[in-house]
Amino acid sequence: MPRTNRSATPLRAGRMRVAAAALAGAAAATVLTGCAGFGYQENICGNGEYPALSVGGTGSACFSDKEEPSDGYARYPAGKVPQQVDDKWDVYWRTHTLDKDGKVIAAPDEN
């Protein structure tokens, strides 16, 4: 009868559990961090829409490419239109706005 080493099986099983736990941990970390490592940026508006700025404030809204902005909103000045959340112009327009004549001014304090 061949000789067997019964202690080898539990040791291999333990290593398999550790490897499985490590893989599960890596998968969970990938899911929890989302697409951050892939440079994902959220668009300000969806396809077929453009952003418009609230006149006299820092709010904005998206309008269909086929319509003009509602009263109280204006198109962003050419070349200063935010495209993605937290891009250069999105950040800029948090502290600036347009007055009723379309002039860029400092945004009023929200306090």
Rank of each mutant, 00 (worst) to 15 (best):
F63D: 07
V81T: 14
Q41C: 06
R17P: 02
G59D: 08
A27P: 03
M16V: 13
G39H: 04
Y73L: 14
T33V: 15
E49P: 02
R94D: 10
G79P: 12
N5M: 09
T58K: 03
V31M: 12
K88A: 14
Q84M: 12
G25R: 05
A22V: 12
T9R: 15
S7Y: 06
D90A: 14
V31S: 10
N5Q: 09
M1K: 11
K103A: 03
R12E: 11
S7C: 06
C45S: 06
G14I: 12
M16N: 09
I44S: 02
S7H: 10
R6Q: 11
C62M: 07
A26F: 08
M1F: 10
V81M: 10
A29V: 13
T95G: 02
P10N: 08
P69E: 09
E67I: 07
D87P: 09
G56D: 03
L32C: 10
P69Y: 04
A13C: 04
G48S: 12
G72A: 02
G46Q: 10
D71P: 06
T97Y: 00
S7P: 04
H96A: 09
P51R: 02
E42W: 09
D87C: 11
Q83P: 00
C62W: 03
Y50C: 05
A106H: 11
L11D: 06
R6K: 14
A78I: 09
A107I: 02
N5R: 12
A19C: 11
T9W: 08
A52T: 09
C45L: 09
D109E: 06
D86M: 14
